[in-house]
């Protein structure tokens, strides 16, 4: 699957550079460089499922910039305009920014003009005393919609909270 940077740049407030089929980079007016993209999952499915990631320079907090959200939205929209896209996210609780990430995805979903075509399916996993926020977004017309949802539910259920997050 190759996403189109040309489509993204038609509306993006910042110039986006494509580093790979599903990987992009842009720099803001605050001189913060973001990398954003999708990475193939191999834990829920062997094909067709991708994790969404974003990181900024040094992966730290950056000044609030609403244009960043606009760029993220365009990249996500381009992803969901593809055939059979499934996006997965799992928010690492170890840096204590997991709820911020989770809210970002929900905020994008709620603001997306075509959200009626998509399902946002979330789950919180109690894992080693942490709450791990996870979610999946897929198109309602996905040919394996029910199977993918069921597989995700099966995956997140009954995660053993006694098993440590970090292997000892």
């Amino acid at each position: 699957m190759r996403l189109s940077v040309d489509k993204i740049n038609q509306a993006s407030p910042y110039w986006v550079v494509q580093l790979d089929d599903m990987l992009f980079r842009f720099r803001t007016e605050n001189d913060v460089t973001y990398r954003i993209g999708f990475y193939k999952d191999s834990y829920l499915a062997r094909e067709g499922v991708y994790h969404f990631f974003i990181s900024n320079t040094n992966d730290t907090f950056a000044p609030h910039d609403p244009k960043v959200f606009s760029v993220i939205s365009l990249v996500l929209e381009e992803f969901f305009s593809q055939e059979e896209p499934v996006m997965l996210y799992i928010c690492d609780p170890r840096d204590h920014r997991e709820s911020i990430r989770s809210r970002l995805y929900e905020r994008w979903f709620n603001s997306y003009s075509k959200r009626d075509d998509l399902t946002l399916h979330t789950a919180n996993i109690d894992f080693d005393g942490y709450i791990v926020y996870t979610g999946m977004i897929l198109r309602k017309d996905h040919p394996l919609y029910n199977e993918v949802i069921a597989s995700f539910d099966e995956f997140v259920k009954d995660a053993p909270s006694s098993i440590p997050l970090e292997p000892k």
């Binding site: 999952d41 834990y43 829920l44 499915a45 062997r46 094909e47 067709g48 499922v49 994790h51 059979e84 499934v86 997965l88 799992i90 690492d92 170890r94 996993i125 894992f127 791990v132 394996l144 199977e147 993918v148 597989s151 099966e154 995956f155 009954d158 995660a159 053993p160 098993i163 997050l165 292997p167």
Partner: peptide, 23 residues
């Protein structure tokens, strides 16, 4: 994707290891 693409885990420990991998 096909139905065969979806990975099934037999035990909770396997699933925990997968969650760790995802993280």
């Amino acid at each position: 994707m096909s139905k065969d693409s979806l990975i099934k885990y037999r035990t909770a420990e396997e699933r925990a290891a997968a969650i760790r991998g995802m993280l």
